[in-house]
């Protein structure tokens, strides 16, 4: 009999603990985010800071995947916020876009290829697959076939690149497709005859050669000064209007000086 009594006492104790633990934890809200790999470094920094200035209020779970993945996830109610690295499209119905930062999209080549500038017409010719050899590109020091490195179709940077730098032309289907900005940069680092495009955050690291566009170099300062034309915006996107913790977070990004300081390190605040 004593064994049964002890057992039931243990069960009761476990039950009490089980009920008490979630009750204590429920004060912390979790904001789930998925989407653009390009804005991930920024959003990650912002989230860390936000948690620091609002202790024991919120938790973040940030996934990547690509802008379109974020859009689909937020539409389906799987996440609170989608990170998006392209402007709203007509298909993005029922969503609210909050711009949080501006960034430049840089065309990059391998370090050994010191190509310094392309015109828009040249860029279009290369990325649509019309020019296939480096001998057809004045200023390029690489030889042989051009290895086009692009992003998978869900990438917002790809959409922005096509709209803002290639005048709406599509990147050739010949191009290899990388799942993230980091992988693209790495591929360009390894392949001497490659060309690709990344946000200025990736090219400013200096491990690849950032190619200028129409005579303007591509880096953070030319994006800030407005000289570089190939820019796009990062958005936080919610289903309908943002509410609750998501609204507080987005409001903090737009208003607080701490967030502005983080954005200004590698990106450009929205003015």
């Amino acid at each position: 009999m004593t064994r049964i009594r002890r057992l039931s006492a243990a069960l009761v104790a476990a039950g009490v603990l089980g009920v008490a633990a979630p009750a204590g934890a429920s004060a912390i809200t979790t904001i789930t985010i998925s989407g653009a790999t390009a804005s991930y470094p920024l959003v990650n920094l912002l989230a860390q800071k936000y948690v620091k200035v609002h202790p024991n209020k919120v938790k973040f779970r940030i996934a990547q995947g690509g802008a379109q993945i974020g859009i689909n996830d937020v539409k389906a109610g799987k996440v609170t916020i989608a990170d998006v690295s392209r402007d709203p499209l007509p298909t993005d119905t029922g969503l609210t876009f909050y711009p949080i930062a501006r960034y430049g999209i840089c065309i990059i080549t391998n370090k050994s290829n010191t190509l310094s500038n392309l015109t828009t017409a040249q860029a279009i010719s290369i990325f649509t697959g019309k020019t296939r050899t480096w001998s057809g590109v004045p200023g390029a020091t690489a030889t042989g076939t051009i290895d086009l490195i692009s992003r998978t179709s869900v990438a917002g940077v790809l959409t922005s690149f096509q709209t803002n730098l290639l005048e709406g032309k599509k990147v050739s289907s010949l191009a290899a497709e990388e799942a993230s900005e980091g992988l693209l940069r790495q591929q360009v680092e390894n392949d001497p005859s490659s060309i690709g495009f990344v946000s200025n955050y990736q090219s400013d690291k200096g491990t690849v050669n950032a190619v200028g566009l129409n005579g303007v170099a591509c880096n953070r300062s030319t994006v800030v000064s407005g000289q570089y034309s190939g820019t796009a915006r990062f958005y936080e996107v919610t289903k309908g209007n943002a509410t609750g913790a998501a609204l507080a977070f987005i409001g903090w990004i737009k208003a607080s000086s701490a967030a502005r300081k983080i954005i200004s390190t590698q990106w450009v605040p929205i003015t």
């Binding site: 050899t133 030889t143 042989g144 076939t145 010949l174 191009a175 290899a176 591929q187 390894n190 392949d191």
Partner: peptide, 24 residues
């Protein structure tokens, strides 16, 4: 992958299929 890309695939092989697919 880097070995095959840098040592086995020749420039002429790359050029021969350059309008269909890229060899990396």
């Amino acid at each position: 992958v880097p070995f095959v890309g840098n040592h086995l695939i020749t420039a002429s092989e790359k050029t021969s299929v350059q309008n269909t697919v890229e060899l990396t």
